[in-house]
C-alpha cells in the first residue's frame, strides 16, 4: 500500500508536469544579464540615466509615468542625477499650477516636487490620440506584466514582419512577444534614434536594456535598499536561529537526561 501511494504521487506529479508544459504557451523571452537580479543586485547607474533619456525622448511622447516625481531622479538607489541636473530636467517641463490670486491657472517650469508631466490630459485623450488604444502608464509597468523585465526587453525587440497567413488591420503591428502577437504600438526604437550623452552606441538592444532597467527602477525604487536590508535580515536571522538552536538543545537536555 505504501508503495502504491508513492507510485500515485509520482504518477500525478509527472502527469501535472506534462499537462503544465503542454498548456502554457511557452514564450522564450530574450535573455540578458540584469545587474539588479540576485542577492546583492544593484542598478547600473549609467544604464538608468540612459534609460531615462530613452524614456523621456521616445516613450514619454505617449506613455505617462504619473507616480514618479522629478525629485526621484536624484534620490539614492535611482539614476542618481545630481540635484542640479534633476532641477534642470524638471525645469525643462511646464506644469499647470494655480489658481493664483486672481483665480486663474498658470503654467510654470516644473520643480523637483512635481510629478512627471503626462503626455495627455487624461486617459480618454490618450486613447483618442492613439487609435483607441491607451498607452499604459509606465510607473509600475514592469510589475504589471507577467514576464516582467524580460517581457518588456523582448517586446521592444520583437517587431517582425507578420508571417504569411496573419492579416493585420490598419495601425496594428506584429510582435512575436506580444500576447496574441498583435500590438497597436509601432516599433518605438530603431538604431541611432537617439544619441546617448555618454557616447554609448544607441543600438535597439542597448536602448531596450537601458529603458527596461529604468522601468524596473521606476516600479521598484527601493530595490537596492530592499536587497541590502534583506541580506542583513537573513544573516541576522540565521545567527539568532543558531543561538536559539543550541539554547534549545541545552534546555531540552535536562528532560532527555531524565528519561
Amino acid at each position: 500500500m505504501k508503495n502504491l501511494i508513492k507510485l500515485f504521487y509520482i504518477i500525478s506529479f509527472i502527469f501535472l508536469a506534462t499537462v503544465h508544459s503542454q498548456s502554457a504557451e511557452k514564450v522564450d523571452y530574450l535573455k540578458t544579464d540584469w545587474s539588479f537580479k540576485g542577492l546583492f543586485g544593484k542598478f547600473d547607474r549609467g544604464s538608468l540615466q540612459r534609460g531615462y533619456q530613452v524614456y523621456t525622448e521616445v516613450c514619454a511622447a505617449c506613455h505617462s509615468m504619473k507616480y514618479l516625481s522629478y525629485r526621484n531622479l536624484a534620490e539614492k538607489g535611482g539614476p542618481e542625477f545630481s540635484i542640479i541636473q534633476a532641477k534642470a530636467i524638471a525645469a525643462s517641463f511646464e506644469v499647470v499650477d494655480g489658481p493664483n490670486a486672481d483665480g486663474e491657472m498658470f503654467t510654470r517650469p516644473a520643480k523637483l516636487s512635481d510629478k512627471f508631466v503626462m503626455p495627455y490630459e487624461n486617459e480618454k485623450a490618450a486613447q483618442a490620440a492613439n487609435g483607441g488604444a491607451y498607452p499604459p502608464d509606465m510607473s509600475v509597468l514592469v510589475k504589471a506584466r507577467g514576464g516582467g523585465v524580460d517581457y518588456i526587453y523582448s517586446l521592444l525587440q520583437g517587431y517582425e514582419d507578420a508571417p504569411s497567413g496573419v492579416t493585420l488591420d490598419e495601425g496594428v503591428h506584429y510582435n512575436k512577444y506580444m500576447y496574441g502577437n498583435k500590438i497597436k504600438m509601432s516599433a518605438p526604437l530603431s538604431d541611432g534614434i537617439i544619441e546617448y550623452g555618454d557616447g554609448t552606441v544607441a543600438s535597439v538592444e542597448q536602448m531596450s536594456k537601458d529603458v527596461t532597467t529604468f522601468l524596473m527602477w521606476a516600479a521598484e525604487p527601493h530595490l537596492e535598499a530592499r536587497h541590502r536590508m534583506g541580506f542583513k535580515a537573513i544573516v541576522y536571522l540565521i545567527i539568532l536561529t543558531v543561538l536559539v538552536y543550541f539554547s534549545m538543545k541545552k534546555i531540552w537536555s535536562r528532560v532527555e537526561s531524565e528519561v
Binding site: 541576522y236 536571522l237 545567527i239 539568532l240 543561538l243 536559539v244 543550541f246 539554547s247 541545552k250
Partner: peptide, 15 residues
C-alpha cells in the same frame, strides 16, 4: 550555558 542564553537574549533584543 550562561553565554548561550545571554547571547540569544541580546541578539533577539537587537532584532
Amino acid at each position: 550555558r550562561d553565554f548561550l542564553f545571554t547571547a540569544s537574549y541580546a541578539v533577539g533584543a537587537v532584532g
